[in-house]
Design a binder for these strands. Structure first.
Length: 582
RNA sequence: GCCCCUGUAGUUCAACGGAUAGAACUGCGGACUUCUAAGCCGUCAAUCGAGGUUCGAUUCCUCGCGGGGGCACCA
């Protein structure tokens, strides 16, 4: 198959228009949302009809007549429909060839890969949890979106570096350390399990945050601790700080491994802070930043943004100043073509100010920084807060999901290790899919009951479809059956063919990947995998795939193999693995 | 008050300005007893309101109403 059939059609249309002395700049070609309207559809006649004052349907008919003169062999039929749409139906031979291409040795695992970002170095910063605070489902969200986008970019050929920026200094740390004094529970011993240590820190933080505003003295103490953390002047604070920081980071590492993220580089606020001070002071002298009420701010009202504090009246760098430094620190380690930062959308306004500051401090970095924001993960009951300790931690959620998966598998003939592995993959699929199935910017109402159901529109449903396909293929291999014999010429053997929806969908995978990449929106892949799964399950229910009586059984096996590759690669792009059995 | 985001079946989500607005869950009704029923088939059910632009609007614009977020020393 040479080139993309869509491009072939576009140039064919352009040529045909030319032959009729017509012209249209960009030919718009799409897959109709309904397969009954063909595989491709163009609205040229509608657009052009208006321009040349012709009735669209009549124009479309004329175009089709002309198109039919040079019909490529991949097209079986062209029709005029509706208000003047031209619909193209692909020929069975096209699909046969496509399927053969997908399942050919060495191709399947790479199906969907694109060379679009070859030789680019792209940074993706995401997750960004704060040591001393819990890793909750909000971080799960950032991690899920970030990992998926990283994999997409990498699938498009770029060299991706995953970055994690962690707030190891700042008020939240001071609150945690201050909170330790209020905790009745003793400081965990070095030998205590990590989960206990982390829980202790989370409690300390919650307690500190709750009581901080009880008395004015509390605020003074907390500010003092915050200062001590920055200048490391207090032995006791140093010890608590170093210990807590280490535990937190160790704990995060466990979670990343489970989630399938491997960061290439970590950056810390404690390093960014002094550097941020330096940069802001330098540009303060140049008049970019100004003093206001004892703080150093970037005055932005005139550009419609908020004025924000970069150095507070205590002389400490705020998140804004640190972030300005972070951009430079990243660039030093990885001189990139593009630097993506993924955060929750609550900082959208703030991020605009940051980019505005970067225009002054490092204009070259400002132009290649891209901010992607995701919505917040909300529970049907209401918002959660780590300040009050009212959070669902990632750990708790994942283990609930795992237990549920184990229970579902209790009658399966799998050994315990297989079950455990499958349950882990299933739990991650459930949570990640529920995050990625919708547009990135929107809030997610996370219903735990639904996520635990694993039915219908869910990650486990897609995994299940994949394992079913694999199970059939395994049986076929045991019987030494051929999977899609490329030597058989279908065009002569099977003329009165009925195409299945499945094959009409499978070949589109690379287009879906491309669109997801262009818009940085993994949900297109999620939706597509769901559709493919539905088509496969129908096919599976209606067709005896392994059937010695049927001489096209090998082609049905080919469809099964192609489905398996598409689902596996697609799930990979969502950051989801596939169990061998489930 | 100002700024940003958002409003689609009972619920959770889709729909690159196109055709009869698509899924899943729920409800109701089925089939099979063949390769994994976490499955399959059928059915009920929706574009917040009013204008405008357009051959065509869920999509773009204006206004209104509802929801979320932000508005200086937290991140």
């Amino acid at each position: 198959m040479d080139g993309n059939i869509g491009d072939v059609l576009k140039s064919l249309i352009t040529e045909t228009l030319k032959a009729l002395n017509l012209e249209e700049g960009e030919i718009f070609l799409e897959h109709p949302s309904d397969l009954r309207h063909g595989d491709y559809s163009s609205n040229v006649a509608l657009v052009l009809g208006k321009k040349v004052k012709r009735e669209p349907v009549a124009l479309a008919v004329e175009l089709v007549e002309k198109l039919n003169e040079k019909l490529p062999k991949e097209i079986s039929k062209i029709e005029v429909a509706g208000a003047g749409f031209i619909n193209f139906y692909l020929a069975p031979s096209f699909f046969r060839a496509k399927m053969a291409e997908i399942v050919a040795p060495g191709n399947g695992d790479n199906f969907g890969r694109l060379p679009l970002l070859k030789n680019k170095l792209i940074l993706v910063e995401f997750t960004d949890p704060n040591p001393f605070k819990q890793f909750h489902i909000g971080h799960l969200m950032s991690n899920t979106v970030g990992e998926s986008i990283s994999r997409l970019i990498s699938f498009a050929g770029a060299n991706v570096k995953r970055i994690c920026y962690q707030g190891d200094v700042g008020r939240h740390v001071a609150l945690a350390i201050w909170g330790i004094r209020l905790l009745k529970v003793p400081f965990p011993a070095e030998t205590a399990p990590l989960s206990e240590k982390v829980k202790y820190l989370g409690q300390a933080y919650a307690l500190g945050a709750t009581h901080a505003k009880d008395t004015p003295e509390n605020e003074v103490e907390i500010k003092s601790i915050n200062q001590k953390i920055y200048d490391r002047s207090d032995q006791e604070v140093n010890e608590l700080y170093d210990q807590g920081r280490e535990w937190s980071l160790e704990h995060f590492e466990e979670i990343y491994e489970k989630l399938g993220t491997k960061f290439d580089q970590y950056f810390f606020e404690s390093v960014a802070a002094p550097r941020g001070l330096e940069i802001v002071k330098k540009f303060f002298k140049k008049g970019v930043f100004v003093e206001s009420e004892g703080a150093i701010v970037l005055p932005e009202e005139k550009s419609g943004l908020h004025t924000r504090v970069f150095i507070n009246s205590q002389g400490l760098a705020t998140y804004e100043a640190k972030e300005v430094a972070l951009a430079e620190m990243k660039e030093e380690v990885f001189p990139s073509d593009l630097s993506i930062v993924i955060t929750a959308n609550e900082v959208n306004e703030y991020f605009k100010v940051l980019l505005s500051a970067l225009q002054f401090t490092a204009p070259n970095l400002a132009s290649k920084t891209q901010h992607i924001s995701h919505g917040l993960l909300k529970l049907p009951e209401g918002k959660m807060s780590s300040r009050t300790g009212d959070v669902i931690t990632a750990e708790t959620l994942l283990s609930d999901l795992e237990n549920k998966a184990l229970e579902k598998m209790k009658d399966r003939e799998l050994n315990n290790e297989e079950k455990r592995k499958a349950a882990e993959l299933i739990s991650i699929a459930a949570i990640k899919y529920s995050i990625l199935k919708q547009k990135t910017g929107k809030d997610i109402i996370f219903d735990i009951e639904k996520a635990l159901s694993f039915e219908g529109d869910s990650g486990p449903y897609i995994q299940y479809t994949h394992t079913r396909a694999e199970s059939v293929l395994r049986k076929a291999k045991e019987q030494n059956l051929i999977i899609l014999d490329p030597n058989i010429d279908f065009s002569t053997e099977n003329p009165a063919d009925i195409l299945s929806d499945l094959e009409r969908y499978l070949y589109r995978f690379p287009e879906i990947v491309e669109r997801s990449l262009n818009e940085m929106e993994p949900h297109y892949i999620a939706t597509y995998l769901m559709e493919v799964s539905g088509y496969f399950n129908s096919f599976y229910a209606n067709t005896k795939i392994i059937d010695i009586e049927n001489k096209f059984s090998h082609y049905n096996l080919g469809l099964t193999a192609a489905t398996s590759f598409v689902l596996k690669n697609g799930l990979y792009l969502l950051g989801i693995g596939v169990p061998e059995k489930m």
